[in-house]
Simulated scan of single mutants.
Amino acid sequence: MTEDPIWQPLQAELARWIHANRSARFWLRDDDTVEPTAALDRLLQLADDFKVPTALAVIPVHTGEPLVKRLETERWISVLAHGWSHQNHAAKDKKKQELGPDRPRPLILEQLRDGCSRLAKLHPSRFVPVLVPPWNRIDPALLPYLGDCGFEALSVFGAAKPAANSLPAINTHVDLMDWHGTKGCRDHAELVAAIVTELRQRFDGSAEPIGILTHHLVHDESAWIFLKKLFQVVAKTPGGRWLSISELMKSQKPRDR
């Protein structure tokens, strides 16, 4: 186990789970995949080295056969739908959003159906029908219609907020990137503290798996170092385990839609 003091709080928290004969559930979502890149190769190698199931949120309209070919021998990779084109349609004074109220609902739903179908055809053995809205934002009025578009779950950022007539949520909770500051990786101690906070909430009753969010295309070296350390720490303790998005889907209770 690494002796880096930055990681001691996480090691101590996972030890508490071991002593309680419990195992914390983690999952990894990486956004904005389109095609093979050196950064994607690095992510795939890490996932393979540590046997970490990784869900790639792929932008349907911009991807194609090159990504299919690159992933054909990968064991730990699943594909999710990252909206349709990852294009912002919100007004300049609003937060970026592709799936907002700024366009006709039928058009948005048609694109989502097409995106779901396209990825299912490109990646028949890897695609899991989960919608990942670009920028983690979606108009609530769209939620009741996602099932008709072929989706079985939704993944955004933050604690899940179950709503009537909507899909199960499998969310992410800790984002490695400092989007509003350096644009690079967040401080490692800050990230460890965020993960520990999520673990303590789960220990006290929340059943949500802890979602770690990455963006391989914009990772600086610090982000890669953090991700590898996280994989190392979790790998060396039975207090935590990584689950695939397919496993998490199976654990969701069926809901009427």
Rank of each mutant, 00 (worst) to 15 (best):
T214H: 00
A15V: 08
F226I: 04
L146C: 15
A153D: 02
T237K: 09
M249R: 12
D187M: 06
V58N: 08
L199M: 09
R25I: 00
D204S: 15
K51T: 11
H216P: 11
L112C: 06
V68S: 12
D148Y: 02
P129C: 08
P53N: 01
S246T: 07
P9Q: 02
L46V: 06
D204Y: 06
S23V: 10
V61Q: 10
A169V: 03
V192H: 03
K236G: 13
D32W: 01
L40V: 05
V218T: 15
G100I: 08
K95P: 14
E152L: 07
Q45F: 10
S246F: 05
T73N: 15
A12S: 13
W224G: 00
P168Y: 02
R137F: 02
V192G: 01
Q232H: 14
D148F: 05
E208V: 09
L243C: 11
R126V: 02
D139W: 05
S117V: 11
E198V: 00
L154K: 05
M177W: 02
D32M: 09
H173D: 09
R70Y: 10
K229A: 02
R186A: 02
D220W: 06
A193P: 14
D178C: 12
L80Q: 01
G150V: 04
K250A: 14
I108K: 13
L143F: 09
V61W: 02
F50C: 04
H123M: 03
P168N: 05
I138K: 08
I225A: 13
Q8M: 15
A81P: 01
M177P: 15
F26A: 09
K183P: 13
A160M: 11
I210C: 07
V79R: 05
I138M: 13
I59K: 08
A20E: 15
Q11H: 14
K95Y: 04
S85N: 12
P5F: 04
R118C: 03
H82V: 01
E98D: 13
L14K: 05
D31H: 09
T54H: 10
S23P: 15
D48W: 10
P162D: 01
H188V: 04
L167V: 03
A194E: 07
P53I: 01
L146E: 10
E72C: 14
A193L: 00
R75F: 06
V68E: 11
V192R: 08
A153I: 04
D178T: 11
K229T: 02
L14W: 09
A38D: 11
L217F: 03
R186H: 02
F226G: 02
M177T: 15
A159R: 10
K51S: 14
A57G: 11
N88D: 15
R257V: 05
E13N: 06
D93Q: 13
A20L: 11
P134T: 03
R241P: 03
L71Q: 04
A120P: 13
E152P: 07
T197M: 01
P168S: 12
L143E: 04
A223L: 03
R255W: 03
E98L: 08
F157M: 12
G239D: 07
N21V: 06
D93E: 13
L119T: 06
Q111Y: 01
N165D: 12
L99I: 01
D114Y: 07
I195P: 05
L143R: 05
A164V: 04
L143A: 08
I108R: 13
L43Y: 10
P133Y: 10
W224I: 00
H19D: 15
I77Y: 00
I212E: 09
C149T: 07
P66E: 12
L154E: 00
G205N: 02
G240R: 00
A55T: 09
